[in-house]
Each structure stands twice: as C-alpha cells, then as structure tokens.
Design a binder for these strands. Structure first.
Length: 254
DNA sequence: ATGGCAATAGAGTATTGA
C-alpha cells in the first residue's frame, strides 16, 4: 500500500492537479492539508469518481484537512480530543488495519509570536494524543505538513534559516519528542539524494533554484516502519502551471 | 530592512502562509 501527503494550498484551485496527480500516482491513501473549504463545498463527487472515498474537516479561508482512500475508511475522528481548537487541522481514520492521522501543524509565523506559542502548545497536545493512539494501534502513521524542518540538511540555506520559524530549537525539539514516542521519519529510513525539499517559496524563483525546506513528513510506528520499503518526494506537480507551493511525499508499505 | 508570490475575502487592501 502506498500512503502519501500533500499540502494543496486550496483544494478549489488545485482540484485539477489533484486529479491529474492521482491518475498518474494511484496511491492507496492521500492526506491533504490546506483545503481551505467548508465541508459543504468539498468536491466529494469528483474524488469519488476518481476511485476514492474521502473524509474531511474544513473551514472557510484557512486550514482544512482530508483523507482520501481507495479502501474503506473507518473510525474517523476530527480534531485532537485533548485540545480544543477552532482551527481544522487534524483528521484520523483507519484503513486496512493502519491508523492514519492527517495533520496540518500551525505555521507559527515568527519565533516568539502568539502564533509560535500556539504552534508549540498545539504540538504538545498532539504528542499526548499520538501517544494514546500508539498504545491502541501498532500499525500507525501520521502524515502531513509539520511546518518544521527537522535538521539543517532539510534546509537549503541553514545559516539563513538558523533560529527562524520552521527551524528553531523548540520546534525541532518538539518534533524529536513526538518521534520519541516511537515514530520514525520514513524519508530518513533510506538513502536519499541531497537537497530534497517538499516546499519552495513562490517568490524569487525559489523552486528553480531549489531554495526549499523539507517540512512535509510521514512518521511511522516501529511496526509500520518495518513494512516500509521506500519513501520519496515527488517534485513533478511543483512544475505544473499554478502549482501548490508544496509537493507530495509518498511512502510504500508492503 | 523590506518585498518578492499566491490565495482568500471582497471590492482597495489586509491577512496569512513558510
């Protein structure tokens, strides 16, 4: 089974890209972030027609997450039961015995800001929930836009980004603590080319210059990591007309 | 130091993203 994550930066705008990408990459599970749609506007029919079930949790203008699956989705949970949040950033479901969480971690805007405090508090609560889920589900994966570059090798210019949002010590520590529950970064299970990123700024031709960050991740429980035989970032849709600023990350589970 | 670019809401420009 292939599982993937993609921040589409508006599903309304990116639906054609989503369908084009799924046609070429018929993954079994796809987690979406930044759908930016209220649930009444979600394009269920188009996604069903592409061969996918879908569950979603959205809001106007900002945030919004969804899980697409070729196989039945069960036990759907919206939001973190340990954290009251008006922002729609989390949805969970079970597919073929694997517990899946789709996460859109807050951006944080700037170190020291109110949004940064929200990001860290939100992430702390996420760890509590994920700890519970891991106790229940041996086969577990949490995929999404973490808005955190784990290490300097995940950053095009570590000196420029040092201590900045997405790269600050507290953010990286929070991600390490989450992994400390027994999760591994699927991407780093394998030899990878250098300078692999999942997001590039729209400005200053950042994509063409490969000035990016690796901030979209697939974290796997130990049991699922043993079944993982590949993890890749697909840069292709970032080259298309009017792209999302993020690209998909795909893990292959056997 | 600031803006660059894109999407949204909504009607000129502000907010957010990363």
């Amino acid at each position: 089974m292939k599982i993937a994550t993609w921040n589409v930066n508006s599903l309304k705008v990116r639906l054609p890209h989503l369908l084009q990408w799924l046609a070429a990459n018929p993954v079994d599970v796809l987690c979406l972030q930044e759908t930016k749609l209220t649930d009444d506007k979600f394009p269920v029919a188009e996604i069903n027609a592409a061969g996918y079930e879908v569950v979603f949790s959205g809001q106007k203008t900002y945030n919004g997450v969804a899980i697409l699956s070729r196989l039945p989705l069960a036990d759907v949970v919206r939001n973190n039961p340990y954290y009251q949040d008006e922002q729609q950033r989390l949805i969970a479901a079970t597919v073929d015995g694997v517990r899946i969480i789709c996460a859109y971690v807050p951006n944080g805007q700037a170190v020291g800001s109110d949004k940064y405090a929200y990001k860290l508090g939100w992430f702390d609560a996420l760890r509590k929930w994920v700890g519970e889920e891991l106790n229940i589900h041996e086969q577990f994966a949490i995929l999404g836009d973490y808005n955190i570059a784990p290490e300097d090798r995940d950053v095009h210019d570590p000196e420029l980004w040092a201590g900045q949002i997405h790269c600050s010590d507290l953010e990286r520590e929070a991600l390490r603590e989450l992994c400390g529950l027994g999760l591994v970064d699927a991407f780093r299970l394998f030899e990878q080319p250098e300078k692999q990123y999942s997001w590039w700024d729209y400005r200053q031709m950042a994509f063409r210059r490969n000035r990016g960050l690796r901030i979209d991740h697939i974290l796997l429980s130990q049991a699922l990591a043993k079944r993982c035989e590949a993890c890749v970032i697909d840069r292709e849709p970032r080259k298309w007309e009017q792209p999302s600023d993020h690209t998909p990350v795909i893990a292959t589970i056997v």
